[in-house]
Design a protein around this nucleic acid. Structure first.
Lengths: 183, 183
DNA sequence: TGCTAAACGGAGACGGTCTCCGTATCGTGG
DNA sequence: CCACGATACGGAGACCGTCTCCGTTTAGCA
């Protein structure tokens, strides 16, 4: 990759991260190009689709997922509390910008999604947490890990679209956690 | 209202219902106008915004909500089963077209939404079901009815966006129901 | 330093939204 | 029955975002 190409690539990603956070996932790509000081052609050559750009933005995000997983697994307390804590992290992770929860959650299960690998990281992390609780016998039978992702993704999606804050989200996560642990 | 105006109004609503169902809530309004055999100007005069059109489409929907509520309240069986049955109806009701669950769920809590009255009908229906179970002492303490709408709206939203069928949705609704009933 | 492959970037086609205003139609009062 | 004013129609076109094509520029090697 030529030096000028790399410079533009990096700058576009940086600007896009900022603009997506400000305006959501539907922000104008031409505007991102303009703010990055490049022509639209340059942006679309590096990132043929909006999703390709999102994928690049999420490169660094993978690490944050790993850290959050460690933190959740290290949690001391009941299975229910561990679940709630993990769910809160989960929601925070996928709320990268307006439209993020919906985007990421619907990309799960779609093997052709451009952000497939990123979703995989997250579903794997979730599976690790859930499997551990299952091994401890703390969960109901028949709990599918992908279902858990979708449930929490759903909560995060409505929270995103209705501008709910953490105090409104928590009770919903608690309901889901209660519905998962064996009674 | 002049006779020709009413004719066009009705025809637009009818066509819009069809097109939204076929193509989702993001369908082109100019296309709807074209299919209805009117100019864009006519469509936008009757319905200044996309939401105004949605509101008109949902006029007849209110009745279906009423019927579904009756059906749910007449349910014989455990609180948990009643909840699951009602949730399934609820999901069906808000899945009027692609984008419907997200649209309707995010309109709840927004007092300025153009489909406010329609949402009110649904939230009231849900409250009726939930309150009845609460009176029977079948629910956990601290269950907010709006939270329930959001939880189920979330499930419906991911189902809509991931093209899940009923067999995939049901287990998630069961988790929520389990999380709500007192143990 | 000269050359070529690589990258740039902007003009513009396209499709959707929405408005303005000249034209056509309804339906009423004479 | 018909003329006229109010009402409604509808299409041309401005505007914006997406995305492409291709003439121009530049990096970096020999």
């Amino acid at each position: 990759m030529r030096a000028d190409a790399k410079r533009n690539y990096d700058r576009i990603v940086e600007v896009a991260r900022e603009v997506f956070r400000e305006q959501g996932y539907d922000a104008s790509l031409d505007e991102i190009a303009k703010r990055a000081g490049v022509g639209p052609g340059t942006l679309y050559r590096h990132f043929p689709t909006r999703d390709a750009l999102l994928d690049a933005i999420m490169q660094s995000w993978v690490q944050r997922v790993g850290e959050a997983t460690e933190k959740a697994l290290a949690h001391e307390g009941s299975a229910r509390d561990l679940l709630v804590a993990w769910f809160e992290e989960y929601v925070r992770l996928i709320s990268v910008h307006k439209g993020g929860p919906a985007k990421i959650t619907s990309a799960m299960g779609d093997p052709d999604s451009p952000i497939r690998t990123k979703c995989q990281v997250l579903t794997d992390a979730n599976a690790k947490v859930v499997e551990r609780l299952r091994d401890e016998g703390a969960l109901k039978d028949g709990v599918e890990t992908l279902q858990v992702c979708r449930l929490i993704g759903g909560v995060a999606t409505v929270a995103d679209q209705s501008d709910l804050d953490e105090t409104a989200v928590r009770p919903m996560l608690e309901v889901v956690a209660d519905g998962l642990v064996s009674s």
